[in-house]
């Protein structure tokens, strides 16, 4: 790890040669974290993301790794206080959409920066309380919508042999990366109330964005789910191909739509996705063998 990008230049890993922090009259402390320190947290969170996820404390180790140098700076020469703070980070269950978790963790560090050990309980409550709502927003904006819109455009264009959609996706994703490499700052500066009230306004944006997603999915079901039946009705001399003569006249690619509805229902009922995929392969083979699909 190079000095500067993943580690602030002016602090050692574990020297503890800094002076002991002194509390003010009301027991709180002067905040010491700078923009640079919080940038380092964001970058360290990016390096970890969700790599340490385990059944024990979920993603807490990643949050602890990210906060390491920020806590070193907050506790200065207070070796015992730092150790307690690190163990608190490791033991406080945490799991939020990683690219936006800096918002919560930054707000948490703001509390610890001012309160030290006395702030840890409030920090833990904040992390546990906000990880659900913030992930709800984060999952939609980081995963589901980009996957729908950029992923389906990239996938569809790639099927046609063009990498343009993939490059477009990479470009927009890079923009998100630039933002997340400093997002502890937003959390730290915004504080608790702003992050909580943000959720209200974003729900309208979520609805608007899902309009875009659902429209694109609607068009792609027609374009990419391909079912064709070679069956033909015979009326003496006259042959009527079922696909071109009947089905396409009702709705183009009606079979694809019916299969989508069926699979959607199965997933909603909780049928295992691997079973659905196996089922599609088996049914395809049977239908191909009897000339129903082809």
């Amino acid at each position: 790890m190079s000095n500067g990008f993943f580690k602030p230049a002016n602090i050692s890993v574990d020297g503890f040669e800094e002076p002991l922090p002194t509390p003010k009259a009301d027991g709180s402390y002067d905040p010491v974290l700078t923009k640079e320190d919080l940038d380092v947290c964001s970058r360290r969170m990016w390096l970890m993301d969700t790599v340490s996820y385990s059944y024990a404390t979920q993603n807490a180790p990643c949050a602890a790794f990210a906060a390491y140098y920020a806590l070193r700076k907050i506790y200065g020469g207070d070796r015992a206080g730092f150790n307690k703070a690190m163990l608190n980070q490791l033991d406080c269950v945490f799991n939020a959409t990683p690219p936006v978790s800096g918002l919560i963790l930054g707000a948490g560090l703001a509390i610890e920066d001012a309160g030290h050990e006395a702030g840890q309980q409030a920090e833990n409550d904040l992390k546990i309380g906000l990880m659900g709502p913030v992930s709800g927003i984060g999952d939609v904006f980081i995963w589901i919508l980009p996957m729908t819109i950029l992923g389906s455009i990239a996938g569809y264009m790639a099927m046609e042999g063009s990498p343009v959609g993939i490059l477009l996706w990479l470009l927009i994703w890079a923009g998100l990366l630039v933002w997340r490499l400093q997002n502890y700052n937003q959390g730290y500066n915004a504080g608790v109330s702003v992050i909580t009230s943000m959720a209200d306004k974003i729900s309208v944006l979520t609805d608007a964005a899902s309009i875009l997603g659902v429209t694109v999915v609607g068009s792609l079901i027609y374009n990419t789910v391909k079912l064709h039946t070679p069956l033909t009705f015979q009326y003496g001399e006259i042959a009527l191909p079922v696909q071109e003569g009947v089905l396409d006249l009702i709705f183009p690619n009606i079979l694809g739509i019916l299969v989508t509805v069926l699979v959607y229902r199965l997933i909603k009922k909780g049928v295992n996705l691997s079973m659905i995929i196996l089922g599609i392969i088996v049914v395809s083979c049977v239908c191909a063998a009897f000339g129903i699909l082809g």
């Binding site: 996957m147 990419t224 079912l227 699979v263 996705l273 392969i281």
Partner: peptide, 21 residues
């Protein structure tokens, strides 16, 4: 049968996605 299945399989992606919408 496998090439028929290859044409149908993208449906799993769309159906899964729609459950989140």
């Amino acid at each position: 049968g496998l090439s028929v299945a290859a044409g149908i399989l993208p449906v799993t992606g769309f159906a899964m996605l729609l459950t989140f919408m």
